[in-house]
Design a protein around this nucleic acid. Structure first.
Lengths: 338, 338
DNA sequence: TCATGATTTGACAGCGCTGTCATAATTGCC
DNA sequence: GGCAATTATGACAGCGCTGTCAAATCATGA
């Protein structure tokens, strides 16, 4: 019926334990033996049973992708990351679970306990803002579960992947300055997200570099959603002196800003330049298409998972990988009006 | 250390097997015994090991959500369905795996084999267009894996969830007719998807009901993507007599149409009415906001999974549930020009 | 050549649960 | 009240693999 490890052992003339060693890439197996076993596995189409491995051993070959279901309702950002994580997992014959967490409440720690207890999760991939949740990190540590972070706020001793968002934001705002804009507003993301801080910092950097003062009126709080972009834009358009350009901390809010501009009859980019951050699919689907910064989410998911697996499979410690950004200058930004 | 079934048995003074029976909701356990065991499980915080259950029994308590990665790159549609499936699974202590399939190639059947062999998947949730892939269905049957479908093309003997998309489309086009439109175009989705057929059929129904002829010029092939919406729109605008309204088979293509309208200086809805289908988040974020049909993806995922689990847990056969649609009339449709 | 340590292999128990089958308790009915 | 038919429970093996620890094999230097 099913090809078992025992069958491979018998066919090869070695013990089950030796086959197991080969399977798990343990050292101290003679190369000749390894090859023989590997060949038999291949030809017999042997596929180890995850259930049995999980039961007998300490490892489950399972990683979970955790995300905050509260701040991120079914976004393409997460879907892309998930795709990347999945890809890396499959390459190493690991399985992936997805685990939405509602962080507002203490209950989410129980979910972690359950995940570890039930499935013996080997490791987790954390997405923002979970990457910086102290309680969560502590609990993972307690359970001895490895983790990799995507865009973590702090970098010390962390495994995962990040981008220099501050410089990216600064470059982007520099682009606006280069177009002659002097009154440039910024719509901030959810306050305690790293992404919000970096992008705001980059905005300030660019203004400073251009010798422009930071006007607090032009910095409006948002929360990464389309709706909050609308609200922020209305607030900006209620000012005496309108900004000629608005940089929002992500594309969704930029869409909100553009929507509002349409609503009040402003023409983008003639009357107002708008730029976002992330380069979600929406960026090219807006009219006019959105100037933004490309953040390769899928790739980031893949790399983070890869580093996690590196660590789990005992090949080194896993690193914090930096990934380059890329400005996407499109049609939503143009020279400042007259 | 870990609380095992044996511990519960000892604490209750019954055999392991009896505890197992309670755990699996098997019949022929005296009510008093059941309660005693249940109480012990609760107080000891017992959590069965999925690995052990999977190894010993025939069931894995695992379901997979399959989707076609080719036609559906990381869409919110799938993300929402996934969310719903996950919710239903968690309610019944099942785990969920996600499994992207590339259907163009024979290789995907191997992936199914692997999924079943490796993980002993109990059942799968199928999303379009996999719901109608004969080879896939046959292979699942062979493996004895139960399945539930979301919006399957055929309804006979199928478990899952569907909407009356044809009537929905017909209502939507009826809405356009009511606004005085006579030259109404339709951008079709990927040809062999059920969604495309129903929506096209509904379009024709509505024209017929209004006594309007179906003009083949006004029916343009698309493929559910933004880009294909752009292409389709350009084609329509190359005709001598432009349509005054365009109904696209989904929201993404509607966005493409609106983008193109903007490009050539057409004002929606003054010069052109546009409507889509699905009510993705994008629908309210477009300018002007899009008239469309609400398809509650998340809920559909939840219901499909629920029916699948119903079947797996042996409580009845699982049904094909119909879910109501809802027209969302927004700002992208208005009275026909002139 | 043989002792010594390093390397490579194997025997076996057991991970936590369920299937099988046998046994015990209970019920219905004449 | 006694017998068969039913219902409720338990003993035990074993799912497919890995951890432990002991044994065999090999390489090395005196």
């Amino acid at each position: 019926m099913r090809v078992r490890l025992e069958d491979v052992a018998r066919a090869t003339g070695v013990s089950q334990k030796t086959v197991s060693r080969v399977l798990n890439e343990e050292p101290s197996v003679k190369e000749a033996t390894r090859q023989k076993v590997l060949a038999a596995m291949e030809s017999m189409n042997y596929r180890p049973s995850p259930a049995a491995r999980g039961l007998a051993g300490r490892r489950s070959f399972l990683v979970a992708m955790l995300y905050d279901n509260n701040d991120n309702p079914a976004s393409t950002y997460l879907a892309e990351i998930q795709d990347g994580v999945l890809e890396a997992c499959e390459a190493h014959r690991y399985s992936m679970m997805v685990c939405p967490l509602r962080v507002h409440g203490q209950d989410f720690l129980r979910r972690i306990d359950a995940l570890v207890a039930d499935h013996h999760i080997d490791g987790v991939v954390l997405t923002p803002p979970l990457t910086d949740n102290r309680k969560l990190l502590a609990r993972l540590q307690e359970h001895g579960v490895a983790h990799a972070c995507i865009s973590p706020m702090h970098h010390k001793g962390i495994v995962g992947v990040f981008m220099d968002e501050q410089r990216a934001a600064s470059d982007l705002v520099g682009h606006l300055v280069g177009l002659g804009h002097r009154r440039i507003a910024h719509v901030v993301g959810i306050a305690d997200h790293g992404a919000s801080r970096w992008r705001l910092a980059g905005y300030k950097d660019a203004l400073a570099a251009a010798g422009l003062a930071v006007d607090p009126q032009y910095i409006v709080q948002g929360e990464f959603t389309f709706g909050s972009g609308v609200v922020a834009a209305r607030r900006l358009f209620s000012l005496k002196r309108w900004p000629t350009a608005i940089f929002t901390a992500n594309d969704d809010m930029a869409a909100g800003v553009m929507w509002t501009a349409n609503e009040i009859g402003l023409k983008v980019p003639r009357d107002l330049s708008v730029c976002g951050f992330d380069d979600t699919p929406m960026a090219t689907q807006l009219w006019p298409s959105l100037t933004t910064v490309r953040q390769p989410s899928r790739e980031m998911g893949r790399l983070a998972a890869q580093q996690l697996l590196e660590q789990l499979r005992g090949r080194g410690k896993g690193r914090l990988v930096q990934i380059p950004y890329e400005l996407q200058v499109r049609a939503s930004t143009a020279a400042a009006p007259g």
